[in-house]
Each structure stands twice: as structure tokens, then as C-alpha cells.
Amino acid sequence: MEPFKFCTRLTLTQVTGLKAFTVPELLEGIKGADDAVIYHHTHRFIKQSHHLVPEGANDFAYWVTNTVQADRLGEELTAIDIVRYPSLADIRGAFVETLERHLAENPGPARTVAPGREFNFMRSIRFSLPTDCAATDHRTFIECLRRVSVSSLYLHVFEARLRPPYGVDDFSHWFRTNFNDETVGREISRLDPYSYTLEGLRQRIIRILEKRLEEVSGA
């Protein structure tokens, strides 16, 4: 059995210089954005704001809601569930579709925000860094979970779904592959970052595993 080696995700922010002052400009920017831009404004947003906003959000929705003050569109962009998409290209497609629909239904002049309040498109340069935490069973997995950073948690639970096997988090995959443990796999794969802060998520996963450990030990 391969031990589960915990890694962590670090990012460096590149400023593209591209800006949007209106919703149509935001749409054009998203259409032309590469994966590193989409990652920055969706996944990185959740990770950076994890202690602030347990509800779902991304930079695009935040700007449209709080700066453009287009409440309905902001709500629709907030509702885009980024962890359910198998790729960053699919996430981009979801934002483009929502914005295009909004603009088709709301023709006419777009509101221009004041200088200084524009949307700045940025990119995340991503780094994976191994930690010294490795688990071989439920018990050591719980010990590692208590120690690793929330960035590590985010990487393995949500970002993992963007790489093969697509749509599956690393934790579920490891428990299924090594212990044939569907229970843990199912419970963890149902978690979403919008219902918890990442610290809350850590506690939730630990509780799932502790309960499972009791069941396995008692069997």
C-alpha cells in the first residue's frame, strides 16, 4: 500500500494588467482568460477567504455584487458551483454562459465603475510542496489532518477534482483504493467548500474518520 503523502498548495500572483470596468468587459476578459486566471479568481478566492466566507463565492461574483451592484447577476455568479466542474475550462464556460445570458436579457448601456474600482485580472502560478505528513491508516490519517495547513486540505479535497481521476478528491480515492472503504469515500466526496470554512471542513473530515475508525475497530 502506498502511504498517503500530504502536499500543500502555494500560489504566486501575477498581475496581467487586463482590467474590466463593465460587465461586458468582464465577459470579454473571462473569455480570453487562460486556466491560471480562472484558477486565481475561483479556487484561490475560496482558499484565501476561507475564514471569512463560508458561503460560496468567487472574485467575479464578489465584484459584480459589491462593486457593480448588479444583485441578480451577482447571485447567479455566486451560485456557480466551481468544485463540481471537472476542469478550469468548464468553469470558464459556466461563467461565460451566465454572463452572456445576462447581457442578452439586459441589453442597453452597461454601468461603468469608477477608476480604482475596476476588476483586475490576475493569474496564479501554482506550486505543490510536499509536507512531512504521511498516513498509512485511518488513525495516522487523522493525526496528519490535525497538522496540515488548510491549503493542503483544499488541495486534496477540492483542487484534486481538476486532475485525473477527474471529479474525485484525493482522500476518497485513497480510502477507496487502499481500504475499499466506500463509506469514507462517499462522505468526503459529498463535502463542499460552501458549507464550511476550511477549518470547519477539517473538523468535519476528522469526525467522519473518527466515527469510521470506531466502526472499523469495533467490527
Binding site: L12, R123, I125, R126, F127, S128
Partner: peptide
Amino acid sequence: DYLLLALHLESGRRDFIHL
């Protein structure tokens, strides 16, 4: 951030880097 930037430049400016 400074150290990550140094590694990014040394890597040949890749977007995804395994350390």
C-alpha cells in the same frame, strides 16, 4: 512570495511547479 518568484524565474517561468 519572494522565494516563490525566484523559483518561478529559475523554472523557466512555468505556471505549475512541483517542488
